[in-house]
Design a protein around this nucleic acid. Structure first.
Lengths: 103, 103
DNA sequence: CAGACATATACGACGGCGGGAATATATGGG
DNA sequence: CCCATATATTCCCGCCGTCGTATATGTCTG
């Protein structure tokens, strides 16, 4: 279910913002080119998914990232990782040579 | 966009099946409790997202996993990883002690 | 070539999601 | 208490994704 929550670009943007530290709803609204109700709605989805925590501070609500669901996602990804990490060295070398050629 | 593609449980199931090796559409239909057209449609989505490759073999079409988009997902996840890996040792120790307590 | 088999596409129905506007709730200040 | 501020919730609507059924396309066999 974390996947469907992360499918929304606005929600990923919110997470990216929270990655660097807590924010109030208002700060997120300013940063997001979305209406305040829109932000609140996305925050609710993120809360329900356990991806963020809320802490009241006067009238403000301060949101913080909760990385646990992302860790689960990472765990889901784990068995696939060997499929590309095996060839990662070769790929990196390939990209490097492309960049080299572009210079 | 990979996120929305992976949001579908059936599609994740398909990827899980392909992780252990290539499969024909028929084999996937048998494994998936979905109609054949349903499987074909999901496969089209996976193809468009670059998550699978097709190879014709007589009347069959053999599908194989393409891990590149998953590697991108892994890259997206990377900056978040430190948020839980920092506490991973402590968490593991905690889980270990819980298991210890249960024994 | 005909018919069977394997897969893909088209179509119609339906439900859920995201967005905006309006409104409700909660908190602080005078 | 009343008002301003900050946030959440509700309602309505349009759209997109998914499903099933039916049908088209492609390929092998005899």
């Amino acid at each position: 279910m974390t996947f469907s929550v992360l499918a929304e670009p606005a929600r990923r943007e919110i997470l990216d913002l929270l990655r660097t530290g807590e924010r109030s709803v208002g700060q997120l609204v300013d940063a997001l080119a979305l209406s305040q109700p829109g932000v609140s709605k996305h925050l609710k989805v993120l809360r329900d998914a356990g991806l963020v925590d809320v802490r009241p501070e006067a009238q403000r609500r301060i949101y913080a990232l909760r990385p646990e669901p992302l860790a689960e996602l990472d765990a889901w990804l784990a068995p696939y990782r060997r499929l590309w990490s095996e060839r990662l060295d070769a790929l990196e070398r390939h990209l490097d040579s492309e960049q080299e050629a572009a210079t």
